[in-house]
Write a protein that binds this DNA or RNA. Structure first.
Lengths: 171, 171
DNA sequence: CAAGATTGACGTGTCAATCTTA
DNA sequence: TAAGATTGACACGTCAATCTTG
């Protein structure tokens, strides 16, 4: 901890610009996906996970873990996407409680276009304006912020810490 | 543009960690505000703008410009906050179309607590884990990303560019 | 008509039940 | 009981009307 939890004017300046950048980058990514592939960022995350899975389908539980969402959020999202024909639910034979979520032909078409355009946008707005050194700084800083928020040890210090830099995948 | 708009595995790694950091930092800030002051991040932005304004009230139009929102978003938010007693609407005498939005006693109490705790959280999760050099890098990088998304000149090159690093304030 | 503002419909996200099956 | 999943209520955010006043 520093002195008295004060944030200096210079620091506020850094924070404001960083905060604004996050917002604008999010918006730009969402606008691009909507325009080029007709899907949202949440749609993209779901479709990508299904597209990369064996058999193009996953149990709801697995899918949720993959994108790092809780089950109710996933259920709502899948309901909306099923309504638009991007994914399809089906019952699980081996577990009466389970549900499979699979990608449809329309969903596959959408994600294929989206992946290409999404990468282009990220490159244009992000990597094209960063030097390699800055990328390294950004990765290190991000990792440290994640550790500060959600400490990998958290009060156990000598507990099992088999996995270190995980936090969550997504995108 | 670079080669063929490709994003390398190393770059994806940077992107994933950065993206995850943004999400977790947002969540941490929201959880803290909710827990310590009973308000959300949008509530915070509105209350802060009103708190810092002369007379603790602003025309809806001005308030919207201040936080960088469009009018309908602002109207919905103010409606919700008015329901919870954090702000209060009143008619404008000099312009029959206008509306004043003012902060209430409850709103003032909330923002006073929130400002202190919010700064503490930002310090703890953000500035305490960044060196000064990294802060500089972050500010420069953020500014460049903002320029890439929303070019300050945008096809005019020799047009009036009185204001340079604005983009938007907020928080 | 244009500006200031509200409303309704809908997509997104969280939390607290709820329901069924293991 | 607990795990897998859905639902309902509500907060947040965008877009396209709409309504009133300048």
């Amino acid at each position: 901890m520093s002195e008295v939890s004060r944030v200096s004017p210079d620091e506020w300046d850094v924070w404001r610009v960083f905060f604004s950048m996050r917002k604008h980058l999010d918006l730009a990514l969402e606008r691009q996906l909507q325009r080029d592939a007709g899907i949202s960022l949440p749609d993209y995350e779901i479709l990508l996970a299904l597209f990369e899975s064996a058999g193009n389908q996953l149990r709801a539980r697995e899918l949720g873990a993959h994108v790092g969402w809780e089950k109710s959020r996933l259920s709502h999202q899948v309901t909306r996407m099923e309504r638009r024909g991007l994914v399809k639910r089906s019952d699980c034979d081996t577990d009466g409680r389970g549900t499979w979520v699979g990608i449809t032909a329309d969903g596959r078409r959408a994600i294929l276009g989206a992946m290409r355009d999404h990468a282009t946008t990220i490159r244009r707005y992000f990597f094209d304006v960063l030097t390699e050194d800055e990328q390294v700084v950004l990765r290190n800083v991000s990792g440290r912020v994640l550790d500060a928020i959600d400490p990998p040890c958290e009060e156990l210090d000598d507990e099992a810490r088999d996995q270190e830099g995980e936090h969550d995948l997504a995108v």
